[in-house]
Amino acid sequence: MKKKTILTRRELIISGLTTIGGLMLPGCGKKLPPTYGNILRMGDNFTYVAQRALLPGQSMAKEYQQSDISSFPATGTTNPANKSNQYYSEAWDRFHHNEFANWGLSVEGRVARPKSYSLAELQNFPSRTQITRHTCEEGWTAIAEWTGVPVGKVLEHAGILPTARYVNFYAYDGFMECIDMLDAFHPQTILAYGMNGKNLPVPHGAPVRLRVEKQVGYKSVKYLQRIVVTDEFVDVGDTGWSWYVGM
């Protein structure tokens, strides 16, 4: 008996595969982060490609009112001057003793004018203040007001080269996170030196931390040391954590 169907099974499978192929297509021209043969990392890359293809480019994360500001736990490294902690940093400890007077953020790699920016120099850029929600991978959220300079402004000042594809942020506590150009030049991606109207407190990453509002909290590294712009993805091995966490 002939079944009356508008879509046959074969057509359904073909159209399904075509849809998936269509989602993958925008990523084919570019090299994606390595997967190490791990199916979980393949899924992460699929999410990255799909979100870049399907979501409008530079939409803004929701910004809140002063009255929405909430309590905010400090997790991960909360004091790099703590000698008993594995993330102890002697260099950061020295800067902290000097109230970060001779601290500097080095911007290097694929930029025309590599330079170390002092805290005062960063604060002399036009600033941006935003009240946003921090989404931790653990499951909690917190709202705070951040003040800083958009990463894009600093990169433009340093003369970022047109071949650049990734921006890598190295921190004094040993962490490193990397974002692509879309997130790096997002207006809400800032180098924050102020939190809730005061200098950024030590547990939250003094003197300057990164804020990447369209990804999960762990991309927003604290205790910044240097920024390295690269053409290629810097392969640090499989950390066991997704590189892209816009979710």
């Binding site: 979501l55 939409s59 929701k62 929600r133 509002e213 369209k214 990804q215 816009g246 979710m247």
Partner: peptide
Amino acid sequence: TMSPAITAAYP
């Protein structure tokens, strides 16, 4: 709705 990237696009 728990995704920062998706809620930025679809508040």
